[in-house]
Design a protein around this nucleic acid. Structure first.
Lengths: 187, 187
DNA sequence: CATTAAATAGACAGATTTGTCTATTTAATG
DNA sequence: CATTAAATAGACAAATCTGTCTATTTAATG
């Protein structure tokens, strides 16, 4: 009965991750989650007190997995400038796989960021982590100092955020690759 | 009874605009709209066939008003490079007023962009309009051609999108002003 | 004044929402 | 084998959701 030997909590989170991202948090009911996860309702509420708790857990888990994949992708590149460019390629690939649904954390912020302080705090953590990661890559990049380290890191982070968002509006990878080419000229 | 002599449809749209932005589209019920607009339910459904139609009208109206204000703000500046910078100041002000709720069209996209093709098409129009506007400003700016016109326009658009989004996560104007300073160095 | 159109209040349908609770069965562990 | 913990199915509550409909009143116009 259990899929791939997964325990209940993993099946809940897998299903929540898929549905929250594809349909949105508000548009996904608990009943759909338990049905598609093939678990009992009481099991869900034993692991998560409220739907909001499930949302927080979803954000944490998605963030961890997202960051691990990103780190792996960047580590496969040796040149420190190319590491920066690899960030854009990684996000292009991911957005193509996820059919340009945009950033899951921005989506969560737009849907439920103002409804619960724990949700907002968790989303802020994800974005701070992303900013810090980019800043480290910039510091080690040996870029041509057309901009300061901080300015370049800000430019990359903001252009990436804007590109993912815009790609999600037009359902195309164009803007993420445009951003990559621009950063290439600036480093 | 009518507020400021407004006709019913305007009261509906005013209320929808306020509630959809502050609470989100999915979190705002028709019943709350009619109650706070102080109109009858039958009146709403005479003007808008479905809630989705109201969403589409909300996007159109918000876009028109947003663009008119932006155009006015930019026209008050004479120097062509300063016009570009004025775009960032305008958005800083607006986000402060709206308590860093982010871009209403990105919010709508994240909540309902995939649910109805008319909604997505309307959101795409708003972003295309914004891109075109920035590109015209860039073409007339006499910038120093560190980047091509297209690249600079893309940079400004993407950094602005990313900045508004990030400002909405951290509830602060910092990133919008950082973006402004970076663009200042690039033009 | 008479006619027409627009807006009103509010009941109602039918579906869906989150969350609780009971009673039963399965699985793991000493 | 006995005990304990975990998961199950599903009824249920109470609220809310969108949308429809009836019946009445208000407002505008010829």
């Amino acid at each position: 009965m259990k899929q791939r030997g997964q325990v209940v909590v993993d099946r809940i989170l897998d299903t929540a991750e898929r549905l929250f991202y594809a349909q949105g948090y508000s548009n996904t009911g608990i009943n759909q989650v338990i049905e598609e996860a093939d678990i009992a309702k009481a099991s869900l509420y034993k692991h998560f007190e409220t739907k909001t708790d499930l949302l927080v857990a979803y954000i944490q888990r998605t963030h961890e997995r997202w960051f691990n994949r990103l780190e792996t992708a960047v580590n496969e590149v040796s040149d420190p400038k190319d590491k920066l460019l690899a960030v854009f390629d990684y996000h292009t690939e991911r957005q193509e796989i996820r059919q340009f649904g945009g950033c899951p954390f921005i989506k969560a912020n737009d849907e439920a960021g103002s409804s619960d302080p724990r949700v907002l705090a968790e989303i802020q953590r994800t974005k701070q982590h992303s900013k810090d990661f980019i800043k480290t890559l910039v510091a080690n990049s040996g870029h041509k100092k057309l901009l300061t380290d901080q300015e370049l890191a800000d430019t990359i982070f903001l252009a990436l955020e804007g590109a993912i968002t815009t790609a999600s509006v037009f359902k195309r990878p164009t803007e993420i690759q445009s951003a990559k080419k621009i950063i290439q000229k600036l480093i």
